[in-house]
Each structure stands twice: as structure tokens, then as C-alpha cells.
Nucleic acid binder design. Sequence first.
RNA 1: GGCGCCGUCGCCAAGAGGUAAGGCAGAGGUCUGCAAAACCUCCACCCCCGGUUCAAAUCCGGGCGGCGCCUCCA
Length: 473
Amino acid sequence: MRLYNTLTRGEEPFAPSADNTVRMYTCGLTVYARGHIGNFRTFVCLDVLRRTLKYLCGYRVRQVMNFTDVDDRTINGAQKAGMDLRAYTDQYIAAFREDMRALGLEEIEEMPRATDEPNLRAMANMVAALERNGHTYRSDGSIYFKISTMPGYGKLARLDHQGMKPGARVDSDNYAKEDARDFVLWKGPREGEPSWEFADAGVPAGRPGWHIECSAMALRLLGEAPIDVHAGGIDLVFPHHENEIAQSEGATGKPFSRFWVHVEYLIVDEQKMSKSLGNTYTIPDVVAKGFRPSAVRYLLLSAHYRKQLNFTWESLGSAEKALQRLTDCLARLDLVTAPGSHPNLAPQIARAREAFAAALRDDLNTAAALGAVFELVSAVNAAIDTGDVGLDDVAAIREAFDDVDRVLGVLSLRRVEDECPPVPVDEIERFIEERHAARRRRDFAAADRIRDDLAARGVLLEDSPTGTRWKRK
RNA sequence: GGCGCCGUCGCCAAGAGGUAAGGCAGAGGUCUGCAAAACCUCCACCCCCGGUUCAAAUCCGGGCGGCGCCUCCA
């Protein structure tokens, strides 16, 4: 497939470097709060990348996504809550896993947390390697990365340091640095903060800096540099990923990652959605508003991942409707009883499949891919109306939708949601029977009352010549 | 101050030199006890101004507008 690489600022043909296996690292969540749908835009898009690589390109994927469970925010949060750091971050990791499931994210091979012993040790070893290679200095008990020792520094972010606005921002790290651009690898111990020591590696008591986590865990769990893909939100380009490159390449002497993939922001009210701005929505927030996680997933896929996406409740409502059009079409297939097949449909199915795959292989163009799916929906609906569909066609259509959804992951999610409707299924069926009897005696007022009552409880009834079907609102 | 992205129908959104996909909403019709679903028909010359070209929404230049990054950030 073709994939945009932030490193080169262009699309390039992508294939894994070895073994037919894509080794991909994803910067995950800092677990000091529940992730919001802005965070999940990144994770959903990367889930579709992962699925595209697996199901459309035929590669194996080995993915690592970390939890940052030690940094200023998690430490402060734990202190405020009067909790142990580990217990404090546990809650948000559990919440993240719940949201992952709700959004239909595939299981990821490794989801390490920074404070697991083998990871801390890997970080310490990397710090030691950087010290050996002369990329560091110590000051006030902390160890820093010295940027002037890396001539290639800045190749990812391409920042022009000459033009930087002086004093645009003040470094929030209160640690003594020789140069404002240097960054901390290992923070010296402080009162009330967790601390680890790796004397055998020559690393004194303290805690890891943010950037070293990802470098160390990526190489520990994915093997030799360069890995194939390193991905995350676009806000991580600088400084996080730039610094990861400096560390990893300073320690190993090899390129860190072949491809860098960055997902654009989800914005809301024309501003980026972020916890510090207080304009975030979580999956439970969305559910409380009466929307379904599948609609969120759909909405997040309705725009290209490298374009900002402005979230509104209105667009979430549209997403809900669009998704319903897909599931309604599939439900209509149940009404087909004619055997055999009609000659028109097969080429349309083939064309849609090709367009779908081509769109995704073209730098993950999910919006265009959805367009291809809806064109098939129109063709199928029209064929059902004219009776030009046989059971063999139905099987082929279902198979096409199954394949499409292996990548989009949105129909299967709906199906899971539909398994637990707001009204118990046996109760719905009883109402349908009652309404059926009312209609037979032409008591339409009673029939309509039953339908309205169910609608108010979130269940819609649709009559057809072959019976009544229900669906969730 | 430096760098980058974006501006396509009422809303969302593909398209990136060859005459505008798709979704939502809307109008009219068919079907229905009524609905719903579905179908049919209708609904855009692409922010503005110049330029290149046989041909530009797509390329170039200049405006205007929006967003982002420049060490908390998915």
C-alpha cells in the first residue's frame, strides 16, 4: 500500500522490512484520566491501518501500544487522590480497555506499561548506552540528552530554530539543562515521587523521562531497529517523536523507524479537543447522550486521517443514520427468497470491492472507501426492489460486506450493540405479536400505540410483506 | 516572528490537469391502514483575483478566511 511518511513528507510504497511482518509501535495514552474521543481518533485510525495491513495487504502485524503510567500528571493525580500510583493508573487502563472494546479496536499484541520492571530496565540500559556514546550529561541528579551531539536532530519535525519566537513558551520541566532544547532522559529523585535505581547499568535513583519510555519499549518488544512503523497523534511529532529518534539512534547507531504515521486532530468548537482545554468528550459521555460507540467509530472514519475533523453532535447524528443505512440494507437481504443469481450484481460487487481496497491502499482513504460501500448499498437496494437478486447473490453480497467490515470494524460492532437492545428481546417479540393481532382486527390505534411506545423506548418496528422486524433506534 | 495544513452543495466529505463519489438534511413521486425502510426524479462549475494550458476544483503567483505546531498534549 501507499502510506504517507512524516519523515519524508510524502507518500511512499509501504511493505514490511522482513518476514512479511509489520512491526508497528503506537504511542498510547498517558493514564491520568479517561481517554477522550480525540485520543481515540488516533487509535481508531491506527486500528484501521492495522486491519488494512492484515486483511487487505496480507501482512502479519506485531503491534505495541504503551501506557504512560509515570509522569508529572499521573504522579500528581495519584497524590491528589491519595492513591498508590499503580492503583491510580490501573483505573484508567481498565477504562481504556473498556473503551477499546466499545469502539471495536482489535486486540493489540503488546500493551506494556512503562513501570513494568523489564521496561524500566530497558530504559536504564538505553540511558547507559547513550552515556557510553557520549550523548548525555548529568546535572542535579538527572541525566540529559545533549542535542548538540546529534547532527541530524530535527529531521522529523523540521523545525527552524532560528525563527522560533523567543519566549513563546516556557519549559515546564523544572530541571537544570545546559540548552533549552536538551531534554531529560532520567529524572533525579524527588520527595514523594516513585524512584527506581539500576546500579548495574550505572543509572542512579530516579524515574524515566517521557521520551525514553517509548524508545526503549519499542526496541525491547519489536526487536532490532529500524522498526517498520511508528505512529501516534500529530501533536507527538515534536518534541516526543523527534526526541525518540535522537535517543534510539544515539543508542543503537541505526535508524529508528522506517515510517512515521501521524493522525490529525479531532477538533471541537473549532478548537483542538484536549484535556487541558476542558472540551473533551469520552465514550461514556457519548453514550449518555444517546449515541452509540459504533457511530463514533464511523464518524472517525468518515474523514481522511491526515485532515482535521471537527466533531459536532450533529455530525455524530448523521453518522448514526448513515450506519443505519448500511445495516438496513443487510437486513433487507433476509427477505430474498429467490434461488440462483442475476448477472448484474456480480460485477457491481466486484467493482465495489476493488474500489474499497484501492481507496484504503491509497494512504488509508477511509472516506473514499465508505463511498464505494454505499454505492454497493444503492445497487443492492435497487436490485432487491426489482427482484433481481437471488440467494447466491445474497451470499456474495454478505461475503463482500464481511470482508469490508474486517477492515472497517463497524458493522460487527453494531451487531454486538444490537444484541443488547434497550427493551428485552422476548418483550419486543411479545409486543410484535400483540400489534400483529391488533392490525388483523384493524385496530390501528392500538397497533400504533404499541409501535410508538416501543419507539419511545428506543426500539423501531418496520412492517414488510413477510412480517415485522425490529431494530434499535 | 518561523514552519505547516486547510477552504468543494444547507451540514459532513472524497476527488489532485480532462469536465464534480458518497453520507446526512431537503423537494416531488411510488409502495404502506398509517409509518418506517426502499426505489425513482430533483438539488454544486469547487473562497476571491490573476497566470500557465487545447483543457484547472485540481498546477503557479497574490489576496482573504480557518486551524495547528514552535518542548503538558492522541
